[in-house]
């Protein structure tokens, strides 16, 4: 019993990071992912604030799940999430004003972020507080990773280097030159990537990579499932043929054997 609970905890934490990544696999929350990823610092800040909002809302909704009647659960979730977003906005405006002015409206748009509402309705509604907590942290880490990857490519290709210290001003200002070396004439940066078009391009290419990996996994699963099903059907046919052969002469068995041999050979060819 204890192992089941522990494995459920691990499952809800790990699945949000890679296997069911909210941005790349479930395709949710794409609006901030394209808009705030012009620099890796703002993407990281957005991911942090997103994780905070998701965590608080998941825990509170999981605590209140028995008190809210079924009919009115959507309005209540919206109010809870909006309350936490307002609190986050006020904290950010006070302690990280550069991040607040960079993110702009997208901090308020966390209220209608599909991931936060989706996790509340699909997971926090039915699971314990501990599971909801771990699920929120897992999804937050997954989303932050996803938008940081997009922001890394957009910033590196668009401005030529990674700059830190502009938004999180307590860090020393430092530019890591990758494509643009300030002392020399080398400048291979392409400014289209920090424009709006670049967001679409990088996101499309990232999704193509993810789709390629998924397709490979899916073909393997498909071929395995097919072989299994054909073997089951062949076994049923053999049993039926045996029952028929017990009453009738031998040729029926020979045709049944030939019919079994062909589908299995075909799937083996497809697998290669």
């Amino acid at each position: 019993m204890a192992e089941k609970v522990q494995s459920k905890h691990r499952e809800s934490f790990v699945s949000g990071i890679i296997r069911q990544n909210p941005l790349f696999i479930s395709m949710l929350g794409t609006c901030p992912a394209l808009a705030v990823t012009t620099s890796i610092e703002s993407a990281f800040g957005m991911g942090l604030l997103f994780t905070f909002v998701l965590l608080c809302s998941n825990v509170i909704i999981s605590l209140l799940k028995k008190l809210i009647p079924e009919v009115v659960h959507t309005p209540c979730y919206i109010v809870v999430i909006a309350a936490f977003v307002t609190i986050t906005k006020m904290f950010t405006e006070a302690f990280l004003p550069e991040l607040y002015s960079t993110l702009g409206v997208f901090l308020s748009l966390l209220v209608v972020n599909c991931i936060v509402l989706g996790r509340a309705e699909a997971f926090a509604n039915k699971n314990t507080v501990a599971d909801s907590f771990l699920d929120a942290i897992g999804n937050g880490i997954g989303y932050t990773l996803a938008i940081c990857i997009i922001a890394f490519f957009r910033e590196a290709l668009g401005t030529g280097g990674i700059t830190i210290g502009k938004i999180f001003t307590f860090l020393p200002q430092f530019t890591l030159p990758l494509l643009k070396y300030p002392g020399t004439n080398i400048d291979m940066s392409m400014s289209v990537f920090t424009d709006s078009a670049g967001g679409f391009i990088v996101m499309g290419l990232a999704l193509a990579v993810i789709m390629a990996i998924e397709n490979k996994k899916n073909t393997k699963k498909k071929v395995d499932a097919k072989i299994k099903m054909q073997q089951e059907m062949a076994a049923k046919k053999a049993a039926a043929a045996k029952a028929a052969a017990a009453k009738s002469p031998a040729p029926a068995v020979a045709t049944a054997n030939a019919a079994i041999a062909t589908p299995v050979a075909e799937t083996k060819k497809e697998e290669k």
Binding site: T219, K221, K222, A225, K226
Partner: peptide, 10 residues
């Protein structure tokens, strides 16, 4: 869904 597609093909 790969399992469903496999079923359809079979």
């Amino acid at each position: 869904d790969p399992v469903e597609k496999a079923k359809e093909e079979v």
